[in-house]
Write a protein that binds this DNA or RNA. Structure first.
Lengths: 243, 243
DNA sequence: GAAGTCAGTGAACAACTGTCCTCTCAAATC
DNA sequence: GATTTGAGAGGACAGTTGTTCACTGACTTC
């Protein structure tokens, strides 16, 4: 602590850095990152344009920082949900409720992620994709630990996890649009629909093994290869009933 | 022909209008609409900036035209798929194959829609949402006609249709990213995954009736059918909210 | 308390933007 | 063949953009 770097100096720097992030996030509610101007942001904060460079090389770098801010803090919440041992239906309701609450409390962050997920700035797209993959992996690990996943291939657990995560992200985006364009009523409809969709997926999961869903895994671990066959998850009913 | 309006005149106008659309679409592969410049587009086409106004009021209007171009022509294709009477699994494979082919043949259009679906231009977002809703309605109508949907509520058929459509749109976007960043191999993985996810949804659909999935429809006054299963709970985000 | 670090300033730069206005001149109408 | 129309050209306008450079002055370090 004594010889530790910086003091009130770095605290102030952090403060204006945060101000830049906040200002950008605010401006991004009505435009996308690739059209955001550096001067535009500094003007809101109240600093000279050139001061921007003390914090970020360019707006893309700011965008990546924004991604971490928006998604990074969410992992604990996700883990908390996954740790619960409710029945499937209650778990779904709880999950959707958390999404709903998050959208209500951090609308700008949600909008930013939804918009820039496929937006025009490559670095930001990658940052979001990476963060979402972490979620997928966490969900996949949790799913795999459940008895319901007995006999499942890893690839199938993963595809299920992606289905869940993507649906939740999509729901968050829809919820945002619904709330501001159709009011609370429209938002309620989105929530209702999301719960049912998740429930349907959950039912599909429960009966997955009964149907003979075979099929080779493409490019299994390691690159090209093209071999199939896959002796992996033989526990699942891989019956012939393919038609 | 005699009194008919325009001749080679309007033909030429249509031609440069199309050139504007093509140029914009090309430029939009690496940026988003809200950062696209009017002069930028006219420069590619090779006309004066002011000539732009002869065709569109602004870039938003051009964007809406681009939406129609990208999605409008797709309805016949969708209807063709829906008309087929294959078994579920073959139908899924066929559908995904069509998506795959469409992405390969019209990558720029797909990218545009994926990007601007939640992009920064309201008019374009609405245009895309409207077009996608038409797809949802077509799919819902087709699903409803199937014997498998006997006893289903309209709201549930619709929710299922949205699930299908959204998954396909998402897949198209992922497929595009995968192809250009991970090569054909990564694209193959996306396709494989999409097929399984659709199959899982399809399984969920088949067993939907077995589980007691009740719940009142929000907004609708008279809730139909017996509601059991989970306690409905209309106001999700309201009560529970810990510290 | 002297020396150094570094967040933020402010002027200046060339390049670019959207829009207005007047003009041209080939096609369409009469 | 004279007249009207309208797509497109070209100049000019006031703003805005990102980036450079030398600078100030409060804080940190020795």
């Amino acid at each position: 602590m004594s010889h530790s770097v910086g003091g009130a100096r770095q605290a102030q720097k952090q403060k204006t850095r945060q101000a830049l992030l906040d200002a950008a996030l605010g401006l991004l509610e009505e435009q996308s990152l690739s059209s955001l101007g550096l001067r535009e942001v500094t003007r809101v904060v109240g600093i000279a344009p050139t001061a921007f460079y003390r914090h970020f090389r360019d707006l893309g770098e700011l965008g990546v920082a924004l991604v971490e801010e928006a998604l990074g803090s969410l992992h604990v919440m996700v883990r908390a949900i996954l740790a619960e041992q409710d029945a499937a239906e209650e778990r779904i309701d709880r999950t959707v409720a958390v999404v709903e609450r998050h959208v209500r409390e951090h609308p700008a962050h949600v909008r930013f992620v939804a918009r820039e997920r496929r937006g025009g700035v490559r670095a930001v797209r990658h940052a979001i994709a990476g963060e979402l993959e972490r979620f997928v992996e966490e969900v996949a690990a949790a799913l795999k630990a459940q008895p319901l996943s007995a006999g499942w291939r890893d690839e199938d657990v993963r595809m299920l996890a992606e289905l869940y995560v993507d649906r939740l992200v999509t729901t968050a985006g829809e919820l945002l649009d619904a709330r501001e364009e159709g009011g609370e009523e429209a938002a309620g409809r989105v929530v209702w629909r999301a719960r049912r969709q998740l429930r349907l997926i959950s039912i599909g999961r429960r009966h997955w093994g009964e149907e003979g869903v075979g099929g080779a895994v493409p490019g299994a671990s390691g690159g090209a290869g093209g071999a199939e066959g896959v002796g992996e998850g033989d526990g699942v009913g891989e019956g012939d009933g393919d038609g």
